[in-house]
Amino acid sequence: MVAATLPMNSVRPSLSASPEAPASETQLILLARKGDLQARETLAQQLRRPAFLLALQLLGNRDDALDCTQESLLRFFSKLHLFEDGRPILPWLRRIVRNRAIDMLRRKKVRRADSLDSCLEDEAPIEVPDTTQDTHRTVHLREQKALVWSCVQALSQAQREIIILRDYQDLSYQEISETLEVPMGTVMSRLHRARAELRKKVCSALDGSQRG
């Protein structure tokens, strides 16, 4: 069972944004809007990593994620004059990336999903303590993460995106509701259906691997 072997106390930096934009962010946007190249460059550097991460998770392919990120950032800068002052950037960017990714998926402009190893970072050398037991445990955890990720890839597009936004991006229900442009009440029911389906897939994958 997955729950029995996964640690519950690990910490991960959240990509969710604060309700209000920090002052420096607002200044950067104002400068970028006036055409300040340095401000644009700084903004692009700050935004491309979270944008790429979301695109990679939604599309499952590194090259597609690069294309999606690049096009999303271009769109972001071309529509910067429409951005409301004082609002945080990330929710807006997230919506742009998500819409672009869906557009690519609809037009079948996506390559085949990459193998798991090319999407997931190899974390074992950093996390493994120098004992045989812990080494086995960390390798086992990595396998479980890869298994869960492969099951997420097998979900429908709507289910995959809500799982990614909640469980991989760690967004709040409010942020998910803004990104998907659905009412808050819909988020929980949709998320539950997606989780139930994911759990079913993980269970059958675990059963399959135990039989094999």
Binding site: V2, L6, M8, S10, L120, K145, V148, R199, C203
Partner: peptide, 21 residues
Amino acid sequence: SMVEELEGIREAALTTRFVQV
């Protein structure tokens, strides 16, 4: 059991690290 499993899956997702460019 369902809560434990779903929490386990969520934890696996939260701690997954993806490649960067």
